[in-house]
């Protein structure tokens, strides 16, 4: 029991901070750069990503363990995962719209944005590569997505402050955001001492 808790703690720190999904693995860069102008939209996006990635990594792990592995067709994982994720996001959107309208109000706009987010597929594939069980896959998805939320909210906070700064003409827009992200990546390198 204690071992499981220890493993989960290590997984939490490593997947949310040390090997942060955006800043060290470069997954999900599109929403990270595109939807980080304001803190509240960034937080909404982060919430939606946590929601989708946790469910998607659980479903992908179940499909892998129950269907792909017993049938010995694991080489089909890329095709199966991408279709399952695309369908799942559609389904989650419809379900929320019908049954949990309040949550749909909060996350609805961001859900279609995540359909082909490479982080979702990337995490599902990483879980398979690392041979996690179903429980650990869900935990890994959750913690990685929390790491995404931390990164995007911090970046949005910095960008809000940066609005009023005097930035060289050529660096306005994407370049300065990329440099900010680079500095954040350096800061996140510091977490590697935690493990």
């Amino acid at each position: 029991m204690l071992d499981v808790v220890k493993d989960l703690l290590i997984l939490m720190i490593s997947s949310s901070l040390v090997s942060n999904v955006v800043l060290s693995q470069f997954l999900g860069l599109c929403p990270f750069l595109g939807v980080s102008k304001k803190v509240d939209t960034a937080a909404g996006m982060g919430g939606a990503v946590i929601f989708v990635i946790t469910i998607a990594s659980g479903v992908a792990a179940v499909i892998y363990k129950v269907i792909l592995e017993p049938c010995d067709i694991t080489y089909l994982r890329t095709i199966v995962f991408i279709l399952v994720i695309a369908a799942l996001v559609q389904f989650v959107e419809m379900f929320l719209k019908k049954y949990v309208p309040s949550l749909y109000q909060a996350l609805g706009v961001y859900l279609p944005l995540i359909t082909t987010n490479c982080a979702v597929l990337g995490i599902a594939l990483t879980n398979v590569q690392k041979n996690y069980g179903i429980g650990f896959s869900i935990a890994s998805g959750l913690f990685t997505a929390v790491g995404f939320m931390i990164a995007i909210v911090i970046l949005a906070g910095i960008r809000e402050k940066m609005e009023y700064n005097d930035i060289p003409e050529s660096f306005k827009g994407m370049p300065i955001v990329l440099i900010t992200a680079g500095l954040m990546a350096i800061a996140f390198c510091g977490f590697s001492g935690l493990l």
Binding site: P168, S170, F171, P175, L178, I179, G182, A185, C189
Partner: peptide, 19 residues
């Protein structure tokens, strides 16, 4: 060659392109 360098190189290239 580490992660932050990728952001910096791309930032420089995009700035050049903006210019």
């Amino acid at each position: 060659v580490l992660a932050p360098g990728a952001f910096f190189v791309l930032a420089a290239l995009t700035a050049l392109q903006n210019r």
